[in-house]
Amino acid sequence: MKRLLFLSLALLFLAACGNNEANEEATEGTEQQDLEEITLVLDWTPNTNHTGLYVARDKGYFEEEGLDVEIIMPGEAGADQLVASGQADFGVSYQEGITMARIQGVPIVSIAAVIQHNTSAFASLADSNITAPKDFEGKSYGGWGSPIEEAVLDSMMQQEDANVDEVEIVNIGDTDFFAAMEQGIDFAWIYYGWTGVEAELRNEPINTVYLTDYSEKLDYYTPVLSTNEKMIEEKPETIKKFVSAVSKGYQLAIDNPEEAADILIEAVPDLDAELVRASQEWLAPKYQDDAPRWGEQKLEVWENYSNWLYENDLLEAELDAEKAFTNEFLPN
């Protein structure tokens, strides 16, 4: 009799355990289902411009905000087009791209500056002796075919009485900087935080001519995070949650670049780990820089750059800069 009672109690205990496990699994499943599915499209292959996004995903910051964020590559369509059409909720973009898009009536909006100041430069191998815009004369420039490139070159060269018509402009597409130099190109436009740091690691001396040394109007936001006007109108709380999580991600990258680099390396194993770590150290103080908080954008920066584009006949009309960006979703 006691044995039967013991067996009955044991069966009841096992059944209760089974029910608890089933309930826990059901609860977990419900929690997963409750997460809002979001798509984030990158502008390019993953690099340290994107670290805060991967940190937010892999440290669970998105999940804490109730979001399930999928990070995808842009493909042939491009990030701006995917975001503007609603095929992606958020994207990585650039001030110049958003400016051009809005002039054409495309409803895309910048919601945070990833890096506070423009860190791009025209770079060349040191033995080319290109150290200033006047040295561009008689040289070949490798670009991607945008009219903005020639205008920037012209603007900088005019300050030194040099002529942009003396530059051979070659469309090299997405050819790597170092490969382009081996193919006879003399200089190209780079982001120092990636290609410049790579040059240091390769012990390959390069010269850099920074855009911001020649015009404050060229100190624009690149890259930025974007969304579309429909999202802002219909899902402002989703945007606020997204930006809150991303802000935490970039704050960790600022405060602990080594940990942030490890997260990116684990998320994207194909990346050069040494380059990621060195680039992360270089970029960490530049994400926020002199801004009161990460992601902050200034109206004057948007106006300065759009006015420069308009003055150089690169815009068909003047930009309504106040509608091109917003700080309203940044954490206080």
Rank of each mutant, 00 (worst) to 15 (best):
Q87R: 15
Q104M: 08
A317V: 09
R202C: 08
E259Q: 08
I172F: 09
N19Y: 13
R102K: 02
T27W: 07
G29N: 12
Q116K: 06
V55C: 04
E137H: 01
T227G: 05
Q87E: 15
Q158V: 09
L319T: 02
K298Q: 06
I130L: 02
D43V: 14
E281C: 09
D219I: 03
L218P: 11
Y191D: 06
L82I: 08
Y305M: 02
Q297S: 01
L275G: 11
P133S: 00
L7H: 03
D43F: 15
E182M: 08
L271E: 12
Y94N: 07
G78Q: 14
L7V: 00
V268I: 15
D165A: 04
E281K: 06
D289N: 05
I111E: 00
P107I: 11
E258W: 10
Y310W: 02
K298Y: 02
A245T: 07
L7W: 06
T175N: 11
T99W: 00
F6S: 00
I72F: 10
T119L: 04
L12H: 03
N171V: 13
V106I: 13
G97H: 03
I172Q: 06
Y310P: 00
G196N: 10
V41K: 11
A278M: 07
E166G: 03
P269W: 09
K230P: 03
V92Q: 14
L330M: 14
L125C: 05
G196Q: 07
M73R: 13
L315T: 00
N228V: 11
K248Y: 09
F187E: 06
N207T: 14
E318S: 10
P236C: 13
S8N: 01
T30M: 10
A321P: 12
V69G: 04
L201K: 12
D219E: 08
L82R: 15
M181K: 11
V92Y: 11
E204R: 06
D313L: 02
Y192Q: 05
L14V: 08
L82E: 10
A121E: 13
W194L: 01
I71T: 07
A199H: 10
I108T: 06
E150C: 04
Q251E: 15
E216Q: 03
E64S: 09
V55R: 07
P257E: 05
Q158L: 14
V55H: 08
F178P: 12
N163Y: 04
D43A: 12
M73E: 13
C17Q: 13
F13C: 09
F177N: 14
W189T: 02
